[in-house]
Each structure stands twice: as structure tokens, then as C-alpha cells.
Design a protein around this nucleic acid. Sequence first.
DNA 1: TGTACATCAGTGAACGCGCGTTCACTGATGTAC
DNA 2: TGTACATCAGTGAACGCGCGTTCACTGATGTAC
Lengths: 190, 190
Amino acid sequence: MDAALLQIEAGESFERLSLRSVARAAGVVPTAFYRHFQSMDELGLALVEESFRTLRAMLRQAREGLPPEHIIHRSVEILVDRVRAHRQHFLFVIRVGSTGNTVLRHAIRNEIRLFTSELATDLARFPVLREWTTEDLQMLAGMLVNTMIATVGAMLDAPVAGPQSEIEIARVAEKQLRLAMLATPHWHSS
Amino acid sequence: MDAALLQIEAGESFERLSLRSVARAAGVVPTAFYRHFQSMDELGLALVEESFRTLRAMLRQAREGLPPEHIIHRSVEILVDRVRAHRQHFLFVIRVGSTGNTVLRHAIRNEIRLFTSELATDLARFPVLREWTTEDLQMLAGMLVNTMIATVGAMLDAPVAGPQSEIEIARVAEKQLRLAMLATPHWHSS
DNA sequence: TGTACATCAGTGAACGCGCGTTCACTGATGTAC
DNA sequence: TGTACATCAGTGAACGCGCGTTCACTGATGTAC
């Protein structure tokens, strides 16, 4: 799994990653691959699972002990932090999430839907949102998640442009989340 | 180019599309490929260009003659319409836009940035947004574009679930765009 | 504590296959004079 | 109007290569009695 992530980080796409090259990078003969996974798809699914363990940890971290006043600022901070710390996992998820591989794409889409639902549940606790319909909470959560995904995508392309642009991206993300939340008191749900 | 798009529509990813399979689908011998493109990357870039011609036409259509009252509803209608009519192009852009192929990914990211800037310029004409800083207009445009991209992504996965879910996706997209715009009078730019 | 057996990760040879690319070629269509 | 030449898309044989997968194997570690 590490060998695969390393190669993706180096610019390879999971799609054209060969079983043999993964085995090679792992310092093992091609046939040894089969001792661990039946196919590259299975490797991919294992990576999806591992990656989303990271992401769920992030959501948990954001949930507990976030003072409501600075919740947006802190959330973006945590996101930036996590992307830096677990670059490979985010890279994998972002790159494979809209790829041609149907199995992996759906696995990731499902995890993101789950993620969005959890966020919607959290949002329901905000006083302003208490009266909102479930559908509208999902809608809002979806928008926030979309913004975060786009932010991660931009960050992963950013290191080329240096840390300055990373700060810029975080600033924009924070504004976007703030804007979305700013609308909530004026939304008549249902 | 059609042969490549057809195979992508059939579930193949551009990444693992081979020169030979494209030639085969085009009813031509592999070597004939080189009469048209020097490499698969060049084919990809030509497809990026073709696809964004379609997308620019969409923006133009949305710009001209949209009565401000129903502008969001109509925009989503146009988007849904265009995705149905030019499914292959949207599929290509969405799938390749976050892929491992650096050349194509950057080409598409650049086009989307251009697209976002054009939208920002259009937004500047709204009375509510006239006083906004350029940066904030870009921020808002980025958010709207992100929402649209996510919507397209969902739509492209939807046909499996039938036309009912497509209507649902459009409804959510409309709400999300409406929510973002609802915040604008309350945003103190800069 | 010693013996017998099972499990497990890794080995290395071999296979047939589709790949990208080269080369010299063909024959139809377009252009110049 | 006729001739000579250039351009162009497509052909078909050939190459070397990396691929996924099979097979029977090895030797270390764990487990049962």
C-alpha cells in the first residue's frame, strides 16, 4: 500500500499503476503481490478504506472542542493541517474519486456521501439551523463538503507554486465557508 | 477524437486508453494515428479544447438574455440541458480534470480558472455586487463554479439511478446557488 | 522440551498478449505550369 | 486541357518490452501434542 501511494505521489495515476511496478517498489517479486491482494482493484479499495480512516479522524477532531465562534477558521486550519500531514491519502482520494475505475469511484463517492451526512447531523445542532428540514441540511452540508473538496484539490496542486499560494487557498476557502453560513439566518427552509 | 470519447463514455478512462484501441475504434491501422496526433497527450489536449468550446458556448447562452429574476433557475436548466446534450465532453473533462496526467490536468484547471474569471466579470454587473473587491468576486465565482462542477459530477453518475435522481440533483444545485447568492447582501466585502 | 505438521510470504521460470513506435510502401486527391 | 509533382491518410510487417497470471518451489515462523 505504501509503495502504491508513493508512486501516486510521484505523479503516477492509480489507473496506470501496474501490479508489477507496485511489487517492484515494494521490493518484492510480482507473484508475491497475490499474497496480499487478489487484484489492483482490491489494493485500491484497501487504500480507500485507509484514506477515509484519516478523513474520519479529521471530522472527529473538528467536532470535539471547537468553540462555535471560531469554528470556521479552526475547521479550515485543521483541513490544511491534515492535508499537509496525510498528503498521500488526500492525493489518492482526489485523483481516483472521479476516475474511470467505476468500482473505486463509487466506493469513494459513497464515503463522501457518508461524510456529508455526518456533517449534516453536526450542523443540526446549531441554533440557526435547528428548524431546517433534513433535505436542506444535506444541501448545506453538501455545499460545504464541495467547497472543502475543491480546496483540497487546489492545495494538492499548490506546492508547485510554494507555500504562499497555500495560505491564499486557505483564505479563500474560509471566506467561502463563511459566506455559505452567512446566508443561513435568511434561508426559509422548506 | 470521437473514438476516444466513445470509449470514455463506455467506462474506459482516458489514462488507460491505448493508442491502438483508439485507432481500432476509429477503424484505422495503429500507425495512421500518427497522421493526426503525435501522442495520446496531444489527442487529450485537442479534446480539452473541443470540450471547453462547448462549455464556453454554455456560458454565452447563460449570459445573453437571462432575466435577472429567474437567473439561477434558468442557469441550472441550461446546465442540465447542456450536460444531457454533450455528455461525452463533460465526462471527459470531469474524469480527466483530477487525473494523474499532469499535462491534461493543468490544461483543464486553467480552462476552469478562465471560466471562473469570466463568471466573476459577469457577477460584477449585479447591483448587490457592484461594490465588491475583485478578490471577493473571484471567491464567489469560485464557489458557484465548484457547485456546478460537483453537480455535473453527480449527474454523470446519475443515469444509472434514472431521470428521477437527475431532477433531484438539479433541485439541490439550484438551492445551493440560491443560498450562496442569498448571503451576498450581508457580506461586507474587504 | 522435542517433534511433526501447517501456515505463510516470498521465489523464479515461463506463458501469451497488447502495447508504442519504426519503416518503407501505396494510392488517392490537390496544385502548378 | 494535359502533364508532373507534392501532399496526404492510410497500410502492413516487424521490433522489443512490460504486462498479468500460472505453476511448483522454498524456507522461516507458529501451533499441537
